[in-house]
């Protein structure tokens, strides 16, 4: 998938498959995901709840509990080295050092028993040769940068002394205090209310620019993607169904699922912060690896081939990537001709 003309991507996933062995049988959460993140780029990952966004991203840092989780195939290359092949010690260097991650719920993601200073400095000390005093200085600086007032005075507080928005700022400071190359933010604003969301996204955008790091932003919120990202991947049932530069995607969606997503979502000129409303039908159970298009049962345009064969993520003539047997132009199917009647 990597284009030889381009420089080595920061992160490159190839055919990643992750499954979970549960009491109720196998759950195939990720079924062949491939994407890349270039230097300094912000990639958006969108899709319905349960489509495997978090699992994909947690697998990058090997944070999936094993068992029940298991990576059954694929590679995850960070600047060319496969993270899945690293020893436990080597992956620890990557975690927090090269690739940092922030999670959805700031209320529960900070350790309630430890002071903020401790939680920040332990990461700094781990990934640099600073002395404890320097690390503390650094932590205060970082807290200032994410916009915590009186950072020096509050660095020794406990998490419960902060509000939710402040805690998410702390989380960001904690992720960034080691100067990672890549930040994976898994729905960083979902748990926060709208005005706070905007502030947090502002902080993220500013720091990404300042530090020149790459960003993977997982979200439900297409408006967020539009404001933050350069490129988007759309996931469905553990697979990527479409990948495109963000403007192209909004202007010319080429997968029925994306079309449905955009249809179910307000347009860009709608107020910020409205979420996807669900699409008709239920997402599939992931008990088996898909052998045909997983979206077909809910798809207005599906025809026989969609129910028999698994569409691959392939480039259209103009280079846009999508996984669908139907061809669209301006959100209308043009090929096969009878596709529209298949519903």
């Amino acid at each position: 998938m990597s284009d030889p003309a381009k420089p080595l991507p920061v992160l490159e996933l190839d055919d990643l498959r992750v499954r979970f062995k549960t009491d109720g049988g196998m759950v195939h959460a990720v079924n062949g995901v491939s994407f890349r993140v270039d230097e300094g780029e912000a990639l958006g990952v969108v899709g319905e709840s349960g489509c495997g966004k978090s699992v994909t991203n947690m697998t990058v840092l090997r944070l999936i509990p094993t068992p029940p989780g298991e990576v059954s195939s694929g590679t995850i290359k960070y600047r060319g080295t496969d993270l899945l092949k690293l020893s436990a010690k080597e992956i620890r260097k990557v975690r927090g050092g090269k690739i940092a991650m922030i999670f959805q719920d700031p209320m529960t993601c900070l350790n309630p028993f430890l002071r903020i200073s401790k939680q920040l400095t332990e990461a700094i000390l781990l990934h640099s040769d600073m002395t404890p005093d320097e690390a503390r200085e650094r932590a205060i600086q970082e807290l200032e940068r994410v916009g915590i007032p009186d950072a020096a005075g509050r660095v020794d507080s406990y998490p419960h002394e902060f509000s939710g928005g402040m805690r998410q700022r702390v989380m960001i400071a904690m992720a960034l205090c080691t100067d990672p190359d890549l930040l994976i933010a898994d729905e960083p604003t979902t748990a926060l209310d709208v005005t706070i969301q905007a502030q947090i996204l502002d902080v993220l955008r500013r720091l990404q620019a300042e530090k020149g790091m790459s960003l993977v932003l997982v979200t439900h919120d297409l408006a967020v993607v539009a404001g933050m990202c350069t490129r988007v991947v759309v996931m469905y049932a553990g697979r990527i169904v479409e990948e495109a530069p963000v403007d192209d995607l909004f202007a010319d969606p080429r997968h029925p699922y994306t079309i449905a997503l955009l249809g179910s979502v307000p347009r860009l000129d709608d107020p910020v912060g409205r979420h996807l409303t669900p699409i008709e039908g239920l997402p599939p159970k992931l008990a088996e690896e898909p052998t045909s298009c997983a979206f077909a049962p809910r798809c207005t345009y599906a025809f026989d081939r969609c129910r028999a064969e698994l569409p691959k993520l392939e480039p259209d003539p103009d280079g846009r990537l999508r996984a669908c047997f139907v061809t669209f132009k301006d959100g209308v199917p043009v090929e096969p001709v009878d596709a529209g009647g298949a519903a």
Binding site: F20, T22, D23, G24, P65, G69, L286
Partner: peptide, 10 residues
């Protein structure tokens, strides 16, 4: 999330 959610299939 994983362990908090019951296995979806079952």
């Amino acid at each position: 999330q994983a362990s908090a959610q019951p296995a979806p299939a079952s």
